[in-house]
Amino acid sequence: MNLVIYSLCRESDLLRKAPKDPNFNEEPIKVEWSEDVPGVGQSVSLGGEQRWFKVQITRYQSAQQDIDVYFVHVNRTLAVPVGWDCDGRENETIHVELSTVGESILGFAFNVLGEAPKVGSRLMNYQRTSHPTLMQETSSDWIRDRYDECIPQGAAPYKAIYLTWCKQNVLTTAQLQA
């Protein structure tokens, strides 16, 4: 089984000149399970009507699981942009929080410090507030149970991708008193 991460990077020039580009109303990240290996030049939808081209694909492999992870940069044309806003992240890691193979992901984050996930920590839910950019965190029913480290074979946009397997953990009296 393959886990495919599609990432829509913005061209740096475009980001500066047209920050409200309507093309970027689509979801900039999409994660899906697939039996197929992605290929350069194929197109994909990111939730809207527009088709995006897979322009750069990096394979990450795990030693523990029979899962390959593909990180796929997409663009509006088949050309690889000269400067992307997602360039220069080689020291960062990606954390994909999952319950089981084939299920929708629970969470997705870029760890700027390049760290591994913290096993035992709880996933959070995020809610909008009346403040324009302030988000409120609340505890979810999921905790990080273990992870698989997936490493690229050569040069890659991110140092590693961690598949973080989570389990439900609703607080009970027994757990609290233990």
Partner: peptide, 30 residues
């Protein structure tokens, strides 16, 4: 069936704690 839901998330916000942590929602990662 007995369940416990911590009150702390409602009384405080672990994502926004003075001297420790700030969380901001934005339009793009850059």
């Amino acid at each position: 069936n007995i369940r416990h839901i911590p009150l702390a998330p409602m009384l405080g916000d672990p994502g926004n704690v003075a001297g420790r942590r700030e969380t901001h929602a934005v339009a793009n990662s850059a």
